[in-house]
Structure formats: structure tokens, C-alpha cells
Design a protein around this nucleic acid. Sequence first.
RNA 1: CGGGGCAUGGCUCAGUUUGGUAGAGCACCUGGCUUGGGACCAGGGGGUCGCAGGUUCGAAUCCUGCUGCUCCGACCA
Length: 568
Amino acid sequence: MRTTQLYAPTLRQTPAEAEVVSHQLMLRAGMIRKAAGGVYTYLPLAWRVLRKIEHIIREEMDAADSQELAMPIMQPAELWQETGRWDIFGEEMFRLQDRHGRQFCLGPTHEEMITSLVCNEVRSYRQLPLRLYQIQNKYRDEIRPRFGLMRGREFIMKDLYSFDKDEAGLDVSYKKMYDAYTNIFTRCGLAFRPVEADGGAIGGGHTHEFTVLADSGESEIVYCSACDYAANVEKAELSALVPAAEEMQEMTMVETPGTKTIEAVAQLLALDVARTIKAVAFQNEKDELICAFVRGDHEVNDVKLQNVVAATALRMAEDPVITAAGGVAGFMSPIGLHKEVKVVVDLSVMEMHNAVAGANQVDRHYKNVNPQRDFKDVIVADIRLMKAGDPCPHCGAAVKMTRGIEAGQVFKLGTKYSEALHATFLDENGREKPLVMGCYGIGVSRTMAAAIEQHNDEDGIIWPAAIAPYEVVVVPVNAKNDEQLQLAEEIYRELKAARVDVLLDDRKERAGVKFKDADLIGYPLRITVGPKAVEEDAIELKVRRNGEVKVCGKSEYLGQVTALLKEI
RNA sequence: CGGGGCAUGGCUCAGUUUGGUAGAGCACCUGGCUUGGGACCAGGGGGUCGCAGGUUCGAAUCCUGCUGCUCCGACCA
């Protein structure tokens, strides 16, 4: 390809609408343009990257005994009504009607569609396992699309569904996908971690998220400094922290005027915040009060709490709700609340001795609270958020925290959808059983954005060679110099013949413009053909990633290029 | 949905406070000159100032309503 033929309008200035670096750089590099909020056109450069990512995915999926198919994006409402998700998805689903008034949606995912397909065709355990996938646009009417391709309303997803005859089969499918995903993200040149995650609304299923590490990522993960444990903070399990034993003192009430925050209490009483008990009041979807207690230096994990109390939505409690339940905002205590209030106490709180907690009276706290002795009728559970330095649940070493972008997820669904849609088969004994399912997604367009979030500098994108739009750009320095142009042409043709993915910048621009664009778009390797190349047989190879320059003669550059591309 | 901000040529923005009929830089076209890190000179094309009403002799500017975009929050198989 020649730059004069390439549709890649680059921008010198960053459009005001872009906030995150991947969005800014994709706009500037002429890769994407916005059509509507969360809806983008992929220009040729982006499309090449996407196709390369898809190619890697296809190879790995096929290697994992899977087959590609294509299901409709437009799906009839009845299917979704059968599983109840027509209502559950709510406003996140794009809906439409045909001329007869029949209702459809644009597929946000395809569990219903694939299950109904398989349910008609699979009758026997002999047809299992079955693993089917597709790569296509998905549609979700996000409350708030943002960050360019990171959270779009239309996005490209690879979704695979596995069907097995039993849990053991599912385990095999799951492992195959887990390994395939590891291969895919490795081949894409990305630093990532598979992390244990929360099953969310799907409920209880075993799941891992493949998180591409990037400071700008939306999800926070903890990982062990010693073993390979990694988890989404929402999921990270914690056991109780047990302090040294102390003799229980008698509980007393103390005046603590104006101390509405835990820091204020600790300061007034000259205590470590770790010796205080912090209350956080939530209300559920029925506006019932749920009171959570954690150690003063800990934070409540609202996902865990939500699971413990089986709420579908939790938000910070409003004062009237607290008051109605007999609570006093700012001085909450498990002691003295109305009986029907759900009180959830973190495991570590139960191990505390002679702690300070609210007294459920204005400007008063209790001293020498011993939860094991003093807290009655409470739910004890792991509800706190892991923080850096906490012990790893697997090996006990201190955990570290980092941020990342969820690019893929593998999930054991079990029989939820097969039961709802009566997708059954006959086992070896002729007994009818529901298919055991798994689902496995990769956000393809998001993976492209994540790669940029992870690999960029002040000059632009730095593509890993495997997913770069072109691997090499050949830049003749002086477009008016015939010898340079000819040599550049020659190099371009030789590289093409050697099956290198190469672009020739044949524009009549000054060298600076071409260099700037090459850096912005981020080709892994740049070959500069200047006067020295013509006169002294000195061709320059510049590596985008580290700026290193190698000079070599015409007889050896080809070997150098192939060697460098393998490294980067 | 709650709370901010923005909307003027393809891009970045000025002009709005104090109403007088639209401007800069970049990009684009022509010519010249230049060619190792986003050159320069000259000439040129392109904008119903988001939409709809209203006030006024006159509205990008003031008023009302709407729409779109964006940020924070809630949400996120």
C-alpha cells in the first residue's frame, strides 16, 4: 500500500470530545470517526488492526476445537421472553418493530439464539461437546457510552458458546478457552492477567476476566506478589484478620461531639482507626435499610454486600430511611437498630477487641465494644474490599493492586439457559438432561483500544507488530530525489515479495511530516531512505518502541527487518 | 436519571459580557520556493454561527423551548 492511496486522514490537534488516550490517538491517527454517541466508523487502518486481532482469535478458536458460524444480529422478542431477559435487559437493549408490529432487538449477546438453535439439532450425547462462535457487532444501549471504543453502544465481539453433557465436560471446555484466551492476548502483544471475577447477575458461576493492564482501565484488580493469584477487587475473597488477644473490658458510652467521620472519632479518642468500627448505610431496591460494618481502615465492597443480602440494587441510604429504622446518621451502631434492619458485619470486625463504635445516639460512641460479645442478630460475612498489602487468599503474601481493561471473559453458565429453553439431550443411559453451557467473550474493538492504552507515548501509538496496521513503513526522505524514490520503491517491492506487511510513504511531503505521521500511527518499524542510503549504502531501520536505529546495507536489511519484527 | 460544561468552515478556537450582518491558526486548492522531525511567500475556495420560536429597525450575541455532544455520579451478560 502507498500512503497516497491510503484513506487515513491524520489530525494535528486532538478533537475536544476525546478524553482517554486511545480515543484521542485513534481520532488523530485517522483510524476512527464518530457517527453517533458510542457508534464509530472504522477507517482502513483500524479495520486492518481489527482483522489482525480477529485472525489471531479465529486461529486459536479453531485450534480449540471450535467452529465459526454467524447468527442474526436482529433477534425476535419471543426468544428473550422465554428466558425472561426481554424485561431484565430493560433499556440497555435496542428494540425495534417490523411493519406488522412484531418486536425484535439488536443482539446484545446470543445465549438465547444459540441455545434455541442447538436445542433443535442436538439430541444425543454423541454430538457433544459442541463449541460454536461468531465475530460480529453487538448492541447495548449503555447508559453512558464513553472513552471512544472502550464503551461503545455498537462494538465488535467474539462470542463462543460451549455445550457439554456434564460438569466435567464443561471443565474441559472452560480450560480450553482459558488457554486459548491466554494465547490470544499473548500473541496480540499485550500484558494481561486472567483474574477471578464476580458472577454478577448471572449468579454464582465460575468466571475469569482477562484484564489488559493499563492505568486508565476501569476495573481494579489485585494480584499476588508471590503466586499467580489475581482477582477483580469486587471478587477478591478475604478471610478475617485476627489481632492479638486482649482481655475484654466493660463497654461504656463516651461523649464524642461532632465526630461524624471515623477519622474524627479516632483523632478525638487518640486511637488508631483500625480500632474503630465504621458503619456504612445502604438501602436496597425496596428502600429497606441495610447497615454494613467494617473496620475503620477498611472499605465496604458493595458487590459482596449485594450478594450477601440478595439485593438487586444497593445505594447509599438516605437520611429518612436511616431514621425510620431507628438509626442516627454518623453514629450508627449495630446495637439499638430496629430488629428488621439487616445488619451485616465483616469477618474482621468480629475479631476485634475493645473497639470503638457508634452508639446510635447523637454525639456518642461506645468504647470497649467486643463484637463477639456485644453484637446480637447480625449477619457475619466477608464484605470488605481488598486493599494493597492484604494477605493473598492462596499463599498469604501481600497483594498488590493495579488497574486494567476487561477485554475478555470466560464463564461457566451451567444449565440456566438450557433449562429455560428446554435444550436437552439424551445421555448414555437414555435419560433426558439439560445441556451444560459455557460462554466466552472477547471485546475485539475494545482489545484494539486496550492495546493503545497500554502501548503509546507522547508521539502516538506503538503497535505490537502482530496487530499493527502495517508492520513497516518505508519513508523516502526527499520526495524530489529520484534516486531515493527509486531505492525506496525497490525496498518496498522486496519487502512485499518477502510477505512483509509494508507501506510506502510516497507523499510529496517534507520528511518531518512523514516522520510525525509514522510515529502517530505507530508502525513498529520505519525504514528511512535518505541521502546516506543512496550514497553510502546506509539504510536506516528505526524501531518505534524504543527509538533504536540500526544502519545496514541493501544486502542485509531484509534479514534485519524480519529479525526485528519477531522481537517487537 | 441527577449534577456541571459545550455547540461558530474538516480540526482547534476567538467573537457573545456591552446587538450593527463573522474572524484567526491548522487543513484544502493554485503558483513559487524549500526538502532528515508537523517550512515559507503570494493568491484562492469553503460557515443558513446546533434546531425552532420570540424580542428588535437589526440577533452568533438577548429571551423561551428543543436537540446533540461531553465530563462526574448511579449502571455495566
